[in-house]
Amino acid sequence: MQNRRLFLGSVAATAAVAGLSACTSMGGFSLTEAVRRLLQLSANRAFDRLLQPEGFWDDQVTRLALPDMVGNGRGDVLARILTGPMFKDRLAHAFNRTAARAARNAAPAVAEAVRGIGIRNALALLHGRPDEATTYLRGEMAGRLIDVMLPEFGDALHTASDPLIGEVMAALTGVNTAALANDLAVKADDAIWRAIGQEEAAIRADPRSTNDPVLIGALSVR
Rank of each mutant, 00 (worst) to 15 (best):
K187D: 12
D155K: 10
M149V: 00
L172V: 09
G166E: 09
G174P: 01
A171M: 11
L184R: 05
E167W: 04
N176Q: 09
A188I: 09
N182F: 08
T159K: 10
A181R: 11
L150Q: 04
G154L: 02
A191W: 06
A178C: 05
T173F: 09
A191M: 08
D189Y: 14
A171W: 09
A170T: 14
L150F: 00
A191L: 08
L180Y: 03
L180E: 05
S161M: 11
P151H: 02
L180S: 04
D155F: 06
A179E: 13
T159H: 14
A191G: 08
D190I: 04
M149Y: 03
A185V: 08
P151W: 04
G154S: 10
T177C: 05
N176V: 00
A156E: 03
D155Q: 10
V168H: 09
K187S: 14
D190L: 13
A160C: 14
L172T: 11
D190W: 08
G154A: 05
S161F: 06
S161A: 12
L172K: 08
L180M: 09
A191E: 05
L184I: 03
L180D: 04
A181E: 01
I192K: 09
V168A: 15
T173C: 05
M169S: 12
A179P: 07
N182T: 13
A185H: 09
L164D: 06
H158K: 12
L184C: 13
A156C: 07
D189V: 02
T173Q: 15
